[in-house]
Design a protein around this nucleic acid. Structure first.
Length: 558
RNA sequence: GCCCCUGUAGCUCAGCUGGAUAGAGCAGAGGCUUCCUAAGCCUUGUGUCGGGAGUUCGAAUCUCUUCAGGGGUACCA
Protein backbone atom coordinates (compact mmCIF):
# COMPACT_ATOMS: atom_id res chain seq x y z
CA UNK A 1 0.00 0.00 0.00
CA UNK A 2 2.37 2.64 1.22
CA UNK A 3 5.17 1.08 -0.73
CA UNK A 4 5.19 0.06 -4.31
CA UNK A 5 7.89 -1.60 -6.32
CA UNK A 6 10.21 0.98 -7.70
CA UNK A 7 7.63 3.47 -6.66
CA UNK A 8 8.46 6.99 -5.86
CA UNK A 9 6.30 8.77 -3.36
CA UNK A 10 4.88 12.14 -3.97
CA UNK A 11 4.23 14.54 -1.20
CA UNK A 12 1.45 13.56 1.10
CA UNK A 13 -0.31 11.66 -1.62
CA UNK A 14 -0.73 7.97 -1.06
CA UNK A 15 -0.25 7.32 -4.73
CA UNK A 16 3.18 6.72 -6.21
CA UNK A 17 4.27 8.10 -9.54
CA UNK A 18 4.16 4.59 -10.89
CA UNK A 19 0.59 4.13 -9.73
CA UNK A 20 -0.42 7.46 -11.14
CA UNK A 21 1.06 6.68 -14.53
CA UNK A 22 -0.42 3.19 -14.51
CA UNK A 23 -3.84 4.62 -13.79
CA UNK A 24 -3.57 7.09 -16.62
CA UNK A 25 -2.50 4.39 -19.03
CA UNK A 26 -5.33 2.12 -17.89
CA UNK A 27 -7.75 4.90 -18.60
CA UNK A 28 -6.33 5.27 -22.06
CA UNK A 29 -6.83 1.57 -22.73
CA UNK A 30 -10.41 1.73 -21.52
CA UNK A 31 -10.99 4.80 -23.65
CA UNK A 32 -9.75 2.84 -26.67
CA UNK A 33 -11.59 -0.33 -25.65
CA UNK A 34 -8.43 -2.37 -25.63
CA UNK A 35 -8.35 -5.36 -23.35
CA UNK A 36 -5.78 -7.93 -22.32
CA UNK A 37 -2.80 -5.62 -22.55
CA UNK A 38 -0.67 -5.38 -19.45
CA UNK A 39 0.68 -2.06 -18.38
CA UNK A 40 4.40 -2.47 -17.95
CA UNK A 41 6.42 0.32 -16.44
CA UNK A 42 10.13 -0.27 -16.48
CA UNK A 43 12.99 1.55 -14.94
CA UNK A 44 15.13 2.40 -17.97
CA UNK A 45 18.81 1.58 -17.87
CA UNK A 46 19.68 4.96 -19.26
CA UNK A 47 18.63 7.89 -17.09
CA UNK A 48 18.08 9.93 -20.24
CA UNK A 49 15.04 7.76 -20.73
CA UNK A 50 13.38 9.04 -17.62
CA UNK A 51 12.31 7.31 -14.45
CA UNK A 52 9.68 5.05 -15.91
CA UNK A 53 9.25 3.81 -19.44
CA UNK A 54 6.22 2.25 -21.07
CA UNK A 55 6.07 0.22 -24.25
CA UNK A 56 2.31 0.51 -24.42
CA UNK A 57 2.27 2.31 -27.76
CA UNK A 58 4.37 -0.46 -29.30
CA UNK A 59 2.06 -3.12 -27.99
CA UNK A 60 -1.12 -1.29 -28.90
CA UNK A 61 0.08 -0.86 -32.48
CA UNK A 62 -1.25 -4.30 -33.27
CA UNK A 63 -4.71 -3.53 -31.94
CA UNK A 64 -5.06 -0.05 -33.36
CA UNK A 65 -3.28 -0.69 -36.62
CA UNK A 66 -1.41 2.55 -36.44
CA UNK A 67 2.23 3.49 -36.20
CA UNK A 68 3.61 3.16 -32.68
CA UNK A 69 4.97 6.69 -32.75
CA UNK A 70 1.54 8.09 -33.57
CA UNK A 71 -0.08 6.14 -30.77
CA UNK A 72 2.60 7.31 -28.39
CA UNK A 73 1.80 10.90 -29.28
CA UNK A 74 -1.86 10.19 -28.74
CA UNK A 75 -1.18 8.74 -25.32
CA UNK A 76 1.04 11.64 -24.37
CA UNK A 77 -1.72 14.08 -25.23
CA UNK A 78 -4.27 11.98 -23.41
CA UNK A 79 -2.40 11.93 -20.12
CA UNK A 80 -2.88 14.74 -17.70
CA UNK A 81 0.46 16.01 -16.51
CA UNK A 82 -0.05 16.48 -12.81
CA UNK A 83 3.09 18.19 -11.61
CA UNK A 84 2.68 16.59 -8.27
CA UNK A 85 3.67 13.36 -9.96
CA UNK A 86 5.43 13.87 -13.24
CA UNK A 87 7.42 16.66 -14.74
CA UNK A 88 7.35 15.61 -18.36
CA UNK A 89 6.67 12.86 -20.86
CA UNK A 90 8.87 12.15 -23.84
CA UNK A 91 8.53 9.89 -26.83
CA UNK A 92 11.68 8.13 -27.85
CA UNK A 93 12.99 5.38 -30.06
CA UNK A 94 10.37 3.34 -31.90
CA UNK A 95 7.59 4.60 -29.64
CA UNK A 96 8.57 4.40 -25.99
CA UNK A 97 6.92 6.72 -23.56
CA UNK A 98 9.39 8.04 -21.04
CA UNK A 99 8.06 9.55 -17.87
CA UNK A 100 10.11 11.88 -15.71
CA UNK A 101 9.32 12.06 -12.04
CA UNK A 102 9.00 15.46 -10.40
CA UNK A 103 12.18 15.95 -8.40
CA UNK A 104 10.55 17.62 -5.40
CA UNK A 105 8.84 14.40 -4.68
CA UNK A 106 11.99 12.37 -4.80
CA UNK A 107 13.05 14.46 -1.85
CA UNK A 108 9.85 13.75 0.01
CA UNK A 109 10.61 10.07 -0.34
CA UNK A 110 14.18 10.52 0.77
CA UNK A 111 12.81 12.08 3.90
CA UNK A 112 10.62 9.04 4.35
CA UNK A 113 13.65 6.76 4.50
CA UNK A 114 15.01 8.72 7.43
CA UNK A 115 11.67 8.52 9.14
CA UNK A 116 11.18 4.80 8.58
CA UNK A 117 14.77 3.85 9.38
CA UNK A 118 15.12 0.11 9.95
CA UNK A 119 11.55 -0.30 8.79
CA UNK A 120 12.43 0.98 5.34
CA UNK A 121 12.30 -1.86 2.84
CA UNK A 122 10.00 -4.01 4.91
CA UNK A 123 6.52 -4.83 3.70
CA UNK A 124 3.41 -6.53 5.00
CA UNK A 125 3.10 -8.75 1.97
CA UNK A 126 3.07 -11.84 4.17
CA UNK A 127 1.39 -10.33 7.18
CA UNK A 128 -0.50 -12.91 9.19
CA UNK A 129 0.98 -15.72 7.13
CA UNK A 130 3.11 -18.51 8.47
CA UNK A 131 6.01 -19.91 6.52
CA UNK A 132 8.17 -22.92 7.23
CA UNK A 133 11.56 -23.31 5.64
CA UNK A 134 13.37 -26.60 5.78
CA UNK A 135 17.05 -26.54 5.00
CA UNK A 136 20.48 -27.95 5.79
CA UNK A 137 18.89 -31.18 7.07
CA UNK A 138 22.21 -33.01 7.01
CA UNK A 139 22.20 -36.24 8.94
CA UNK A 140 24.57 -36.04 11.92
CA UNK A 141 27.43 -38.02 10.45
CA UNK A 142 30.02 -35.27 10.42
CA UNK A 143 30.68 -31.55 10.57
CA UNK A 144 29.01 -29.21 8.10
CA UNK A 145 31.14 -28.68 5.04
CA UNK A 146 31.37 -26.05 2.38
CA UNK A 147 28.96 -28.20 0.44
CA UNK A 148 26.30 -27.62 3.10
CA UNK A 149 27.18 -23.96 3.39
CA UNK A 150 25.37 -22.80 0.33
CA UNK A 151 22.08 -24.37 1.36
CA UNK A 152 22.48 -23.11 4.92
CA UNK A 153 23.16 -19.50 4.03
CA UNK A 154 20.65 -19.47 1.20
CA UNK A 155 17.94 -20.96 3.40
CA UNK A 156 18.54 -18.54 6.23
CA UNK A 157 18.54 -15.59 3.86
CA UNK A 158 15.23 -16.71 2.37
CA UNK A 159 13.91 -16.72 5.94
CA UNK A 160 15.20 -13.22 6.56
CA UNK A 161 13.63 -11.97 3.34
CA UNK A 162 10.30 -13.55 4.19
CA UNK A 163 10.44 -12.04 7.66
CA UNK A 164 11.13 -8.63 6.14
CA UNK A 165 7.96 -9.06 4.15
CA UNK A 166 5.89 -9.82 7.20
CA UNK A 167 5.91 -13.60 7.32
CA UNK A 168 6.12 -15.49 10.56
CA UNK A 169 8.93 -17.92 9.73
CA UNK A 170 9.94 -21.25 11.22
CA UNK A 171 13.44 -22.52 10.43
CA UNK A 172 13.43 -26.28 10.45
CA UNK A 173 16.07 -28.97 10.24
CA UNK A 174 14.94 -32.45 9.30
CA UNK A 175 17.13 -35.39 10.15
CA UNK A 176 17.25 -39.11 10.33
CA UNK A 177 19.29 -40.81 13.03
CA UNK A 178 18.24 -44.34 12.30
CA UNK A 179 19.47 -45.26 8.85
CA UNK A 180 22.35 -47.18 7.46
CA UNK A 181 24.63 -44.14 7.47
CA UNK A 182 24.21 -43.79 11.20
CA UNK A 183 24.91 -47.45 11.83
CA UNK A 184 28.16 -47.09 9.93
CA UNK A 185 28.94 -43.99 11.95
CA UNK A 186 28.46 -45.86 15.24
CA UNK A 187 30.60 -48.70 14.03
CA UNK A 188 33.31 -46.26 12.91
CA UNK A 189 33.40 -44.79 16.40
CA UNK A 190 33.51 -48.24 17.98
CA UNK A 191 36.50 -49.29 15.87
CA UNK A 192 38.38 -46.10 16.71
CA UNK A 193 37.51 -46.68 20.35
CA UNK A 194 39.10 -50.11 20.21
CA UNK A 195 42.12 -48.64 18.45
CA UNK A 196 42.53 -45.97 21.07
CA UNK A 197 42.46 -48.72 23.67
CA UNK A 198 45.42 -50.29 21.94
CA UNK A 199 43.73 -52.97 19.94
CA UNK A 200 44.55 -53.72 16.36
CA UNK A 201 41.54 -53.38 14.12
CA UNK A 202 40.96 -53.24 10.41
CA UNK A 203 39.18 -50.02 9.59
CA UNK A 204 37.07 -50.47 6.44
CA UNK A 205 37.39 -47.95 3.61
CA UNK A 206 33.69 -47.27 3.57
CA UNK A 207 33.65 -46.12 7.18
CA UNK A 208 34.01 -42.53 8.36
CA UNK A 209 37.67 -41.61 8.22
CA UNK A 210 37.63 -38.16 9.80
CA UNK A 211 39.62 -37.25 12.87
CA UNK A 212 36.47 -36.17 14.64
CA UNK A 213 35.58 -39.86 14.95
CA UNK A 214 38.70 -40.40 17.00
CA UNK A 215 37.84 -37.40 19.18
CA UNK A 216 34.46 -38.88 19.90
CA UNK A 217 36.07 -42.22 20.75
CA UNK A 218 38.26 -40.39 23.24
CA UNK A 219 35.30 -38.82 25.00
CA UNK A 220 33.77 -42.26 25.33
CA UNK A 221 36.96 -43.57 26.89
CA UNK A 222 36.92 -40.70 29.37
CA UNK A 223 33.42 -41.52 30.38
CA UNK A 224 33.28 -45.30 30.15
CA UNK A 225 36.88 -46.41 30.15
CA UNK A 226 37.23 -49.79 28.47
CA UNK A 227 33.87 -51.01 29.73
CA UNK A 228 32.39 -51.13 26.24
CA UNK A 229 35.24 -53.08 24.78
CA UNK A 230 33.32 -56.31 24.47
CA UNK A 231 29.97 -54.79 23.73
CA UNK A 232 29.78 -54.33 19.96
CA UNK A 233 26.03 -53.82 20.14
CA UNK A 234 26.25 -50.88 22.53
CA UNK A 235 24.32 -47.84 21.42
CA UNK A 236 26.74 -45.59 23.27
CA UNK A 237 28.93 -45.27 20.19
CA UNK A 238 26.24 -44.06 17.86
CA UNK A 239 24.46 -41.96 20.47
CA UNK A 240 27.60 -40.23 21.66
CA UNK A 241 28.61 -39.52 18.08
CA UNK A 242 25.22 -38.13 17.24
CA UNK A 243 25.17 -35.85 20.26
CA UNK A 244 28.70 -34.61 19.68
CA UNK A 245 28.18 -34.01 15.98
CA UNK A 246 24.89 -32.24 16.49
CA UNK A 247 26.47 -29.99 19.07
CA UNK A 248 29.15 -29.18 16.55
CA UNK A 249 26.64 -28.51 13.77
CA UNK A 250 24.61 -26.22 15.99
CA UNK A 251 27.67 -24.27 16.94
CA UNK A 252 28.63 -23.85 13.28
CA UNK A 253 25.17 -22.65 12.42
CA UNK A 254 25.16 -20.18 15.26
CA UNK A 255 28.40 -18.85 13.95
CA UNK A 256 26.80 -18.45 10.53
CA UNK A 257 24.36 -16.13 12.23
CA UNK A 258 21.14 -17.99 12.89
CA UNK A 259 19.49 -20.83 14.79
CA UNK A 260 16.90 -23.41 13.92
CA UNK A 261 13.52 -23.28 15.62
CA UNK A 262 12.78 -26.95 15.09
CA UNK A 263 14.88 -30.07 14.70
CA UNK A 264 12.52 -32.64 13.33
CA UNK A 265 13.46 -36.27 13.71
CA UNK A 266 12.19 -38.52 10.97
CA UNK A 267 11.54 -41.14 13.66
CA UNK A 268 8.62 -39.05 14.90
CA UNK A 269 6.78 -39.87 11.71
CA UNK A 270 6.99 -43.57 12.52
CA UNK A 271 6.11 -43.12 16.18
CA UNK A 272 3.00 -41.16 15.31
CA UNK A 273 1.88 -43.66 12.71
CA UNK A 274 2.14 -41.17 9.89
CA UNK A 275 4.19 -43.49 7.69
CA UNK A 276 1.62 -46.26 7.84
CA UNK A 277 -1.15 -43.76 7.24
CA UNK A 278 0.37 -42.63 3.98
CA UNK A 279 0.56 -46.18 2.64
CA UNK A 280 -2.93 -46.94 3.86
CA UNK A 281 -4.47 -43.85 2.29
CA UNK A 282 -2.62 -44.28 -0.98
CA UNK A 283 -3.77 -47.87 -1.04
CA UNK A 284 -7.38 -46.73 -0.70
CA UNK A 285 -6.85 -44.67 -3.83
CA UNK A 286 -5.52 -47.69 -5.66
CA UNK A 287 -2.05 -46.23 -5.88
CA UNK A 288 -0.20 -48.95 -4.02
CA UNK A 289 0.82 -52.36 -5.28
CA UNK A 290 2.95 -55.18 -3.98
CA UNK A 291 5.49 -56.64 -6.34
CA UNK A 292 8.33 -58.94 -5.48
CA UNK A 293 7.78 -58.37 -1.78
CA UNK A 294 8.16 -54.61 -2.10
CA UNK A 295 5.49 -51.94 -1.76
CA UNK A 296 5.26 -49.74 -4.82
CA UNK A 297 3.75 -46.31 -5.25
CA UNK A 298 2.04 -46.35 -8.63
CA UNK A 299 3.16 -42.89 -9.64
CA UNK A 300 2.89 -43.78 -13.31
CA UNK A 301 -0.88 -43.61 -12.82
CA UNK A 302 -0.39 -39.95 -11.97
CA UNK A 303 1.59 -39.17 -15.06
CA UNK A 304 5.02 -39.85 -13.64
CA UNK A 305 7.55 -41.68 -15.72
CA UNK A 306 7.75 -44.74 -13.55
CA UNK A 307 6.53 -46.34 -10.36
CA UNK A 308 8.61 -46.02 -7.23
CA UNK A 309 9.36 -48.31 -4.36
CA UNK A 310 8.06 -46.96 -1.06
CA UNK A 311 8.87 -49.97 1.11
CA UNK A 312 11.72 -52.25 0.25
CA UNK A 313 11.37 -56.02 0.38
CA UNK A 314 13.47 -55.82 3.54
CA UNK A 315 10.61 -53.94 5.16
CA UNK A 316 12.55 -50.69 5.27
CA UNK A 317 10.91 -47.66 3.64
CA UNK A 318 12.80 -45.69 1.01
CA UNK A 319 13.31 -42.00 1.66
CA UNK A 320 10.30 -41.09 -0.50
CA UNK A 321 7.80 -42.49 1.96
CA UNK A 322 8.84 -40.58 5.08
CA UNK A 323 9.33 -37.48 2.91
CA UNK A 324 5.73 -37.76 1.82
CA UNK A 325 4.53 -38.22 5.40
CA UNK A 326 6.68 -35.29 6.50
CA UNK A 327 5.22 -32.92 3.93
CA UNK A 328 1.71 -33.92 4.82
CA UNK A 329 2.53 -33.35 8.47
CA UNK A 330 3.82 -29.88 7.65
CA UNK A 331 0.71 -29.01 5.69
CA UNK A 332 -1.39 -30.16 8.62
CA UNK A 333 0.53 -27.85 10.90
CA UNK A 334 -1.17 -25.05 9.00
CA UNK A 335 1.60 -23.22 7.22
CA UNK A 336 0.68 -20.94 4.36
CA UNK A 337 4.03 -21.45 2.71
CA UNK A 338 6.30 -24.48 2.95
CA UNK A 339 9.75 -24.22 1.46
CA UNK A 340 12.25 -26.99 0.88
CA UNK A 341 15.81 -26.04 0.13
CA UNK A 342 17.62 -28.86 -1.63
CA UNK A 343 20.87 -29.39 -3.41
CA UNK A 344 20.76 -30.41 -7.04
CA UNK A 345 21.30 -34.05 -6.12
CA UNK A 346 17.78 -34.19 -4.70
CA UNK A 347 16.18 -32.88 -7.82
CA UNK A 348 14.70 -36.24 -8.73
CA UNK A 349 13.21 -36.91 -5.32
CA UNK A 350 10.54 -34.29 -4.96
CA UNK A 351 8.27 -34.82 -8.00
CA UNK A 352 7.22 -38.25 -6.72
CA UNK A 353 6.83 -36.99 -3.19
CA UNK A 354 4.69 -34.08 -4.32
CA UNK A 355 2.66 -36.40 -6.52
CA UNK A 356 1.93 -38.59 -3.51
CA UNK A 357 0.99 -35.62 -1.35
CA UNK A 358 -1.27 -34.29 -4.07
CA UNK A 359 -2.88 -37.69 -4.62
CA UNK A 360 -3.97 -37.57 -0.99
CA UNK A 361 -5.77 -34.30 -1.71
CA UNK A 362 -3.43 -31.91 0.03
CA UNK A 363 -2.70 -28.51 -1.41
CA UNK A 364 0.78 -28.85 -2.89
CA UNK A 365 0.63 -25.28 -4.17
CA UNK A 366 1.82 -24.25 -0.73
CA UNK A 367 5.03 -26.18 -1.19
CA UNK A 368 7.92 -24.51 -2.98
CA UNK A 369 10.99 -26.54 -3.71
CA UNK A 370 14.10 -24.45 -4.13
CA UNK A 371 17.00 -26.21 -5.73
CA UNK A 372 20.48 -24.80 -5.56
CA UNK A 373 23.25 -26.11 -7.75
CA UNK A 374 26.44 -27.50 -6.34
CA UNK A 375 29.45 -25.75 -5.08
CA UNK A 376 32.43 -26.82 -7.06
CA UNK A 377 35.49 -26.28 -5.03
CA UNK A 378 38.75 -25.46 -6.70
CA UNK A 379 42.14 -25.25 -5.13
CA UNK A 380 45.30 -24.54 -7.09
CA UNK A 381 43.19 -24.68 -10.21
CA UNK A 382 42.06 -28.21 -9.48
CA UNK A 383 38.65 -29.46 -8.56
CA UNK A 384 38.41 -30.93 -5.11
CA UNK A 385 35.95 -33.76 -4.71
CA UNK A 386 34.50 -33.79 -1.25
CA UNK A 387 33.06 -36.66 0.70
CA UNK A 388 32.13 -36.68 4.36
CA UNK A 389 32.83 -40.35 4.62
CA UNK A 390 36.35 -40.07 3.24
CA UNK A 391 37.06 -37.06 5.43
CA UNK A 392 38.12 -35.28 2.31
CA UNK A 393 36.35 -32.05 3.08
CA UNK A 394 36.75 -28.52 4.22
CA UNK A 395 34.39 -27.65 6.99
CA UNK A 396 32.37 -24.49 7.21
CA UNK A 397 34.24 -23.69 10.39
CA UNK A 398 37.55 -23.97 8.56
CA UNK A 399 36.23 -21.61 5.94
CA UNK A 400 34.99 -19.08 8.47
CA UNK A 401 38.34 -19.24 10.25
CA UNK A 402 40.03 -18.41 6.96
CA UNK A 403 37.88 -15.69 5.51
CA UNK A 404 35.42 -14.69 8.20
CA UNK A 405 31.69 -15.07 8.58
CA UNK A 406 30.74 -12.10 6.42
CA UNK A 407 32.78 -13.18 3.44
CA UNK A 408 31.48 -16.71 3.81
CA UNK A 409 27.88 -15.59 3.66
CA UNK A 410 28.50 -13.15 0.85
CA UNK A 411 30.28 -15.75 -1.27
CA UNK A 412 27.40 -18.17 -0.98
CA UNK A 413 24.80 -15.54 -1.80
CA UNK A 414 26.38 -13.55 -4.57
CA UNK A 415 25.39 -15.90 -7.35
CA UNK A 416 22.16 -17.14 -8.77
CA UNK A 417 21.23 -20.37 -7.01
CA UNK A 418 20.58 -22.31 -10.19
CA UNK A 419 24.07 -21.65 -11.42
CA UNK A 420 27.01 -23.64 -10.19
CA UNK A 421 29.08 -21.83 -7.65
CA UNK A 422 32.74 -21.98 -8.38
CA UNK A 423 34.33 -21.55 -5.00
CA UNK A 424 37.96 -20.73 -5.45
CA UNK A 425 39.55 -21.44 -2.11
CA UNK A 426 42.74 -19.61 -2.89
CA UNK A 427 40.84 -16.53 -3.89
CA UNK A 428 38.72 -16.65 -0.78
CA UNK A 429 41.77 -17.09 1.40
CA UNK A 430 44.47 -14.96 -0.07
CA UNK A 431 42.53 -12.25 -1.79
CA UNK A 432 39.77 -11.80 0.69
CA UNK A 433 40.68 -8.11 0.84
CA UNK A 434 39.41 -7.72 -2.68
CA UNK A 435 36.12 -9.37 -1.95
CA UNK A 436 33.17 -7.20 -2.91
CA UNK A 437 31.72 -7.54 0.57
CA UNK A 438 34.41 -5.19 1.83
CA UNK A 439 33.50 -2.72 -0.86
CA UNK A 440 29.96 -2.56 0.47
CA UNK A 441 30.95 -2.57 4.12
CA UNK A 442 33.51 0.13 3.46
CA UNK A 443 30.80 2.42 2.09
CA UNK A 444 28.94 1.99 5.37
CA UNK A 445 32.02 2.61 7.49
CA UNK A 446 32.92 5.64 5.44
CA UNK A 447 29.50 7.14 6.01
CA UNK A 448 29.72 6.56 9.74
CA UNK A 449 33.02 8.34 9.74
CA UNK A 450 31.68 11.33 7.83
CA UNK A 451 28.64 11.62 10.06
CA UNK A 452 30.78 11.67 13.16
CA UNK A 453 32.96 14.34 11.60
CA UNK A 454 29.83 16.37 10.93
CA UNK A 455 28.85 16.10 14.56
CA UNK A 456 32.11 17.70 15.63
CA UNK A 457 30.98 20.72 13.61
CA UNK A 458 27.46 20.70 15.01
CA UNK A 459 26.10 19.34 11.75
CA UNK A 460 23.75 16.38 11.87
CA UNK A 461 21.50 14.51 9.46
CA UNK A 462 17.96 15.80 9.52
CA UNK A 463 14.96 14.44 7.70
CA UNK A 464 13.72 17.99 7.26
CA UNK A 465 16.91 19.19 5.65
CA UNK A 466 16.68 21.28 2.51
CA UNK A 467 16.98 18.53 -0.08
CA UNK A 468 16.36 21.02 -2.89
CA UNK A 469 20.07 21.72 -2.65
CA UNK A 470 20.88 18.24 -3.94
CA UNK A 471 21.24 18.88 -7.63
CA UNK A 472 24.25 16.92 -8.78
CA UNK A 473 23.68 13.92 -11.01
CA UNK A 474 25.57 11.76 -8.53
CA UNK A 475 23.23 12.85 -5.76
CA UNK A 476 20.07 12.20 -7.74
CA UNK A 477 21.32 8.81 -8.90
CA UNK A 478 21.91 7.78 -5.32
CA UNK A 479 18.45 8.96 -4.26
CA UNK A 480 16.69 7.11 -7.07
CA UNK A 481 18.58 3.96 -6.28
CA UNK A 482 17.70 4.23 -2.61
CA UNK A 483 14.03 4.46 -3.46
CA UNK A 484 14.07 1.21 -5.38
CA UNK A 485 15.17 -0.72 -2.29
CA UNK A 486 11.70 -1.84 -1.14
CA UNK A 487 10.98 -3.22 -4.60
CA UNK A 488 14.23 -5.15 -4.58
CA UNK A 489 13.54 -6.64 -1.16
CA UNK A 490 10.11 -7.71 -2.30
CA UNK A 491 11.35 -9.17 -5.58
CA UNK A 492 14.19 -11.00 -3.86
CA UNK A 493 11.66 -12.62 -1.54
CA UNK A 494 8.98 -13.36 -4.12
CA UNK A 495 11.43 -14.93 -6.55
CA UNK A 496 13.55 -16.46 -3.79
CA UNK A 497 16.62 -14.84 -5.26
CA UNK A 498 18.80 -13.17 -2.64
CA UNK A 499 21.49 -12.41 -5.18
CA UNK A 500 19.31 -9.63 -6.50
CA UNK A 501 19.72 -7.87 -3.20
CA UNK A 502 23.44 -8.57 -3.23
CA UNK A 503 23.80 -6.93 -6.62
CA UNK A 504 21.63 -4.04 -5.55
CA UNK A 505 23.78 -3.29 -2.53
CA UNK A 506 26.92 -3.48 -4.59
CA UNK A 507 25.49 -0.92 -6.99
CA UNK A 508 24.43 1.30 -4.15
CA UNK A 509 27.92 1.20 -2.67
CA UNK A 510 29.31 2.02 -6.08
CA UNK A 511 26.98 4.99 -6.53
CA UNK A 512 27.88 6.22 -3.08
CA UNK A 513 31.63 5.96 -3.64
CA UNK A 514 31.23 7.93 -6.86
CA UNK A 515 29.17 10.54 -5.06
CA UNK A 516 31.82 10.75 -2.37
CA UNK A 517 34.57 11.66 -4.81
CA UNK A 518 32.47 14.28 -6.54
CA UNK A 519 30.62 15.88 -3.65
CA UNK A 520 32.23 16.94 -0.43
CA UNK A 521 29.78 16.38 2.38
CA UNK A 522 31.01 18.46 5.31
CA UNK A 523 31.78 21.99 4.15
CA UNK A 524 31.40 25.59 5.27
CA UNK A 525 27.95 25.61 3.70
CA UNK A 526 25.89 24.40 6.65
CA UNK A 527 22.66 23.98 4.69
CA UNK A 528 24.23 21.91 1.95
CA UNK A 529 26.23 19.94 4.49
CA UNK A 530 23.06 19.02 6.31
CA UNK A 531 21.33 17.97 3.14
CA UNK A 532 24.25 15.77 2.15
CA UNK A 533 24.65 14.34 5.63
CA UNK A 534 21.00 13.41 5.50
CA UNK A 535 21.46 11.83 2.10
CA UNK A 536 24.34 9.66 3.24
CA UNK A 537 22.46 8.83 6.39
CA UNK A 538 19.76 7.39 4.16
CA UNK A 539 22.41 5.43 2.25
CA UNK A 540 23.74 4.13 5.53
CA UNK A 541 20.26 3.07 6.56
CA UNK A 542 19.66 1.15 3.36
CA UNK A 543 23.10 -0.46 3.43
CA UNK A 544 22.58 -1.58 7.01
CA UNK A 545 19.06 -2.83 6.32
CA UNK A 546 20.20 -4.69 3.21
CA UNK A 547 23.27 -6.22 4.77
CA UNK A 548 21.14 -7.24 7.73
CA UNK A 549 18.85 -9.14 5.39
CA UNK A 550 21.87 -11.00 4.08
CA UNK A 551 23.12 -11.70 7.59
CA UNK A 552 26.23 -9.66 6.97
CA UNK A 553 27.50 -7.09 9.44
CA UNK A 554 27.61 -3.37 8.74
CA UNK A 555 30.75 -2.16 10.52
CA UNK A 556 31.04 1.41 11.79
CA UNK A 557 34.70 1.44 10.99
CA UNK A 558 37.17 -0.65 9.10
C1' G B 1 18.14 -43.36 -23.79
C1' C B 2 15.08 -39.93 -20.76
C1' C B 3 14.59 -35.58 -17.14
C1' C B 4 16.59 -30.97 -14.67
C1' C B 5 20.35 -26.90 -14.46
C1' U B 6 24.11 -24.18 -17.02
C1' G B 7 26.82 -22.17 -21.58
C1' U B 8 27.27 -13.82 -22.02
C1' A B 9 34.56 -10.02 -22.35
C1' G B 10 41.10 -13.51 -21.01
C1' C B 11 38.83 -15.30 -15.82
C1' U B 12 34.36 -15.18 -12.30
C1' C B 13 29.59 -13.65 -13.07
C1' A B 14 24.96 -9.70 -13.49
C1' G B 15 21.21 -8.77 -17.05
C1' C B 16 14.15 -7.95 -13.27
C1' U B 17 7.52 -9.95 -16.31
C1' G B 18 11.20 -9.98 -24.33
C1' G B 19 12.61 -3.63 -25.25
C1' A B 20 15.93 1.52 -26.89
C1' U B 21 24.14 1.58 -28.07
C1' A B 22 24.78 -6.08 -23.83
C1' G B 23 26.99 -4.62 -18.04
C1' A B 24 30.20 -5.30 -13.39
C1' G B 25 34.37 -7.27 -10.67
C1' C B 26 39.14 -9.44 -11.37
C1' A B 27 43.36 -9.56 -14.62
C1' G B 28 46.33 -5.73 -18.28
C1' A B 29 47.75 -0.32 -19.30
C1' G B 30 47.62 4.80 -17.53
C1' G B 31 46.10 8.64 -14.10
C1' C B 32 43.86 10.98 -9.23
C1' U B 33 45.16 12.56 -2.41
C1' U B 34 47.07 20.87 0.42
C1' C B 35 40.35 18.32 1.54
C1' C B 36 35.19 13.92 5.20
C1' U B 37 39.01 6.42 5.61
C1' A B 38 43.11 5.36 -1.45
C1' A B 39 39.52 -1.24 1.53
C1' G B 40 38.14 4.65 -2.84
C1' C B 41 37.63 7.33 -7.78
C1' C B 42 38.61 8.24 -13.12
C1' U B 43 40.45 6.85 -18.15
C1' U B 44 41.45 2.67 -21.56
C1' G B 45 40.71 -2.29 -24.76
C1' U B 46 37.80 -6.72 -25.31
C1' G B 47 32.04 -9.66 -27.08
C1' U B 48 29.56 -14.75 -33.70
C1' C B 49 25.32 -13.37 -25.76
C1' G B 50 27.76 -21.94 -27.53
C1' G B 51 25.77 -22.98 -33.04
C1' G B 52 21.31 -23.01 -36.23
C1' A B 53 16.09 -22.09 -37.27
C1' G B 54 11.45 -19.83 -35.70
C1' U B 55 7.76 -16.42 -33.12
C1' U B 56 7.55 -10.36 -33.31
C1' C B 57 7.64 -3.89 -34.38
C1' G B 58 11.95 -5.84 -31.21
C1' A B 59 15.16 -11.94 -28.64
C1' A B 60 20.93 -12.80 -24.31
C1' U B 61 15.69 -13.31 -22.57
C1' C B 62 10.20 -17.13 -25.52
C1' U B 63 9.72 -22.00 -28.94
C1' C B 64 12.20 -25.94 -31.62
C1' U B 65 16.76 -28.20 -32.86
C1' U B 66 21.98 -29.14 -32.21
C1' C B 67 26.72 -29.13 -29.51
C1' A B 68 29.37 -28.82 -24.67
C1' G B 69 29.68 -29.11 -19.12
C1' G B 70 27.22 -30.48 -14.35
C1' G B 71 23.41 -33.21 -11.78
C1' G B 72 19.68 -36.95 -11.69
C1' U B 73 17.41 -41.30 -13.70
C1' A B 74 18.33 -47.44 -7.33
C1' C B 75 14.34 -52.08 -3.19
C1' C B 76 21.11 -45.13 -1.33
C1' A B 77 19.67 -40.34 1.05
Amino acid sequence: MGRCGNGIYFGRSRMTAKEYISEQLENFLKFKHIEDLDIILQKPKDTKHGDFASNLALQAARHLKKKPADIAAEIRDYITIDEQYISKIEIAGPGFLNFFAASDNLFAQLSQILEQREQFGRSDLGKGKKAQVEFVSANPTGPLTIGHGRGAVFGDTICRLLEANGYDVTREYYFNNAGRQMRVLGESVRLRYLEELGETVTFPDDHYQGNYIRDIAQTIIKKHGSALKDDPESLVFKDTAEAAIFADIKQTIKRLGFEFDVFYNEKTLYDEGRIDAVVRELNKKGLIACRENATWFLSSKLGMEQDRVFVKSSGEPTYRLPDTAYHIEKIKRGYDLIIDVFGADHIAAFPDVLAAVKALDYDVEKIKVLIHQFVTLTENGEKVKMSTRKANFITLDDLMDDVGEDVTRYFFLMRNMNAHLNFDLELARTQSDENPVFYIQYAHARICSIISLGKTKQLSPDQNANFQLLKETEELNVIKHLLSFPGIVKASAVHYEPHRLVNYLFELASLFHRFYTVCRVVTEDAELSKARLSLIDAVKTVLANGLGLLGISAPEQM
